[in-house]
Design a protein around this nucleic acid. Sequence first.
DNA 1: CCGTAACATGTTATCGGTACCAAGCAGACC
DNA 2: GGTCTGCTTGGTACCGATAACATGTTACGG
Lengths: 335, 335
Amino acid sequence: MSPRVTMRDVARTVGVSPMTVSRALRDDETVNEKTRHKIRQVATDLGYVYDTTAQAFRTQKSGFVAVTLPSINNANFAETFRGLSDGLSASGMQLLLGSTSYRVEKEEELVRQLLTRNPEAIVLTGGHHTDETRALLSARNLPVVEMWDLPENPLGHVIGFSNADAMAKLVTHLAESGRRKLAYIGASDLTDLRGAERREGVLAKAAELGLPDVEVLDAGPAPVSMRHGAQAVSELGSRVGDFDALVCVSDPVAFGVLSECQRQGLNVPGDIAVTGFGNFEVASVSTPRITTVGVTAREIGQEVAMLLDELFSGETQGERRVIDVGSRLVQGETS
Amino acid sequence: MSPRVTMRDVARTVGVSPMTVSRALRDDETVNEKTRHKIRQVATDLGYVYDTTAQAFRTQKSGFVAVTLPSINNANFAETFRGLSDGLSASGMQLLLGSTSYRVEKEEELVRQLLTRNPEAIVLTGGHHTDETRALLSARNLPVVEMWDLPENPLGHVIGFSNADAMAKLVTHLAESGRRKLAYIGASDLTDLRGAERREGVLAKAAELGLPDVEVLDAGPAPVSMRHGAQAVSELGSRVGDFDALVCVSDPVAFGVLSECQRQGLNVPGDIAVTGFGNFEVASVSTPRITTVGVTAREIGQEVAMLLDELFSGETQGERRVIDVGSRLVQGETS
DNA sequence: CCGTAACATGTTATCGGTACCAAGCAGACC
DNA sequence: GGTCTGCTTGGTACCGATAACATGTTACGG
């Protein structure tokens, strides 16, 4: 195998020093324009490929931003990732993506692994982490951003919203529309901590408004999706008549619920209301459209990107930023 | 800022050479077990974090596998990514993800960028690439895998299926059910080349079966999703009555189409059939369930991972692998 | 007691860029 | 002419790990 072409080779061919080649390829304007041109030309001709690994090593700047998502297969997180990716592409940063499967221990392992790549910043989804994760991150002098949540005890910057508040808006809306007997459908276990916050938000607001106790229906372990929503209703059988509103942890679950209700001949919203979370595309396209809470998934990613850009360009000096992007009720036709 | 802790520091503290530390941390069994233990202990105590960048540089092995996807916000590609990610995690490889937005020029730029990170393999979605991309890849001695397609002129290994064949199965099924007048709904432009293959598959099979000409309806530029399907039907207005089957480029589009049909009071499948592609969750949960073609998104990723594992472990010697994972008709209730 | 093997550890050079400092050279100005 | 300034280029060391080779140490049979 022929050894790789390096700057040295380019330099020798052009008749300059490697240093000049390095400068030319990074568009350093102190290099004479003709020289720069020639160097670029020769580099292309020789099939030279810049070695970012070497650069990262020498400069101690990896050009990486580490990102952890609970799941990549979730339209909202994917949108956030896209917003982040697009927003950062200008600055030349590469995203290093890892998926935690909604589990903090997995997150810890992932963070440990990602840190060995020397990221210049790390973006975590959610505000729940193991102590070890917290320790690992605070031991380093590394910008940390938590998103999709408003943690009480943030590790660094925060760009998120309150899951509990968002659900409270829905419950209030349902109560105002005369719904009384609510059921909550979401993941059973405590692995999905954002889901747990939503559930608590529902229970708290219902209690505050003096509604009867909300029944919590188990849709199985996280991540729950359309089929789990459908199944939950199916398992409920005739007991579905006990409720006049089904509050779901997410739009996909709500869609599954809606679909199964339709299959059973129930009238939504006549017989029963259904609500979701996240303003996924399916909520606005289904018939009837699903009442949900809109969160600005894409913008969260963009905001994070903007914040990181500022940090990298040195405009911002460390002061902790906490941005609540909020959420808004999106009234559909299912309530 | 305190300078980072390196192997040298660990070595000094333990009283051995850096080489021994290196060996110990990589679980080299030639290192005495007590020594190994002590080194690990000290490394933890000092807060040492292994520097993969330095390792990658020294060994000229990045530990990266580069992956390009048309879109991350697509359940099927996300599943493939997950399969790949899970399958490779054992081998310690990190995925470097890039999104092409369904454009080959974007892919070229991405490939160029990814190559500077010295990936040990590259996985591309689809079989269409610019000449420059092909040149870049063949200039390197790098395993290349193309997936989600069966390209005529593959760059390396292939794990995919025929998009045209898949659609042909649907058309055959529709024809056998007595449907005659088909419309195809998909992206208009030629950016989504997989979509284009599907369209051609539909047109070819319809012609072969002697069906009337298939009308191609424009759902806008790629990527098209639920809302575009709904909109296409909406724009069609009363002309929807001209058709007895709507063949859609993907399940999300089909769902949008189905939903809008329901909104207009059409009976699916009584008045008109609707079909999708990809066997997305929405197809199996919607009411009625959507007839579609199942592709094994997850398994494609797993297959790629297995292939790469073999390549990395040196079991396989270069011979080009072409795996057709096929596709299968999934009959729903919309046809 | 010696040679040899098996095991454990150390030494040196190196991967490909680039920070830092030095220096050559042309033109301007006194 | 001498000096100074600005522009352009070069030399050297180094980032942190590890491959390749060398060395030291112990065990054991003859």
